[in-house]
Simulated assay, not measured.
Amino acid sequence: MTNVSNRSNLDISAYFVVGPENTKNRPVAPIIKDVVDAGYTCIQIRSKTASALELIELTKEAADVIEKAGRADEVTLLVDDRLDVVLAAKKMGIKIDGIHVGQSDIPVEICRAYLGEDAVIGLSARTHDLFDYIKTADVSLIDYFGAGPLHETETKPDCGTGADGKVITRSFEELAELAKASSIPIVVGGGVKLADIPQLAETGVDGFFVISAISEADNPRAEAEKLIEAWKENYKRKKV
């Protein structure tokens, strides 16, 4: 495997987040294959329960799936939070493109220092002062913002938690304002369902991310295809 980065052609339009706790006890790799075959452009390995070794193995499985599909130069593979896992995977020759971190995770400055200029680094946008943050944040070290949630979600209950511990969901109107305000791409998730995709695509954000809508579906491939086709149809319409 190579370690060529996808930073230069990063595409967050169809973004899938997955870990072993999200699949109804099914293997992760076949679901990733379904998503990659459906045309998704970004895969994030995320688990709060898996060990470092388990995360490295999941990353390897995902990289193998992407490689076998012939999409190693098109699909960006990231790991959530775990800089140690990313560094270990890279050292083992696994094609891993970067990391996604939250506000309370390892600082992006440290991630960039260890991973280098070619790595993709995504950052969960701050919740309680989101608009000011996106307008004023130093984005020189990051490649995209993750924003949300659109709805409250059990899969990621901490998504969008404000200073008072309550979840702050985002309206389509707010997301349209965010898209205009941000100087870097924005991907939105948090309870996103198929019915949300047309309006979400119209806001001007650069992509959607999903977890359970695909990973817990009876037919992950079918759900993945429905979501990405709805995005393409409506995002293209907006751009015309």
Rank of each mutant, 00 (worst) to 15 (best):
A14W: 05
A137F: 11
V17T: 05
K24Q: 11
L130T: 14
G207I: 04
C159G: 01
V36W: 01
A88R: 11
S8Y: 07
V36S: 03
P107I: 10
G190K: 03
E154S: 14
D64N: 14
Y133P: 02
G98E: 08
I56C: 03
A163M: 13
D81H: 05
L58N: 08
L227C: 09
A179S: 11
Q199D: 13
R71G: 02
C159Q: 12
A125L: 13
T127Y: 06
S140L: 03
V36N: 05
G162N: 12
E202G: 12
R112I: 12
E229C: 09
V85F: 03
I45C: 11
F145R: 03
T153Q: 08
E67T: 13
E109Q: 14
V101F: 13
T169W: 05
E177G: 00
Y235V: 14
I43H: 09
L178P: 01
I197D: 06
Q103Y: 13
Q103S: 13
K239V: 13
P27Y: 10
D11L: 06
P149C: 06
S51C: 05
P20Y: 06
G165V: 07
D196P: 08
V188E: 01
S8M: 04
P220L: 09
S5T: 12
V18M: 04
F131P: 00
C159A: 15
T169S: 08
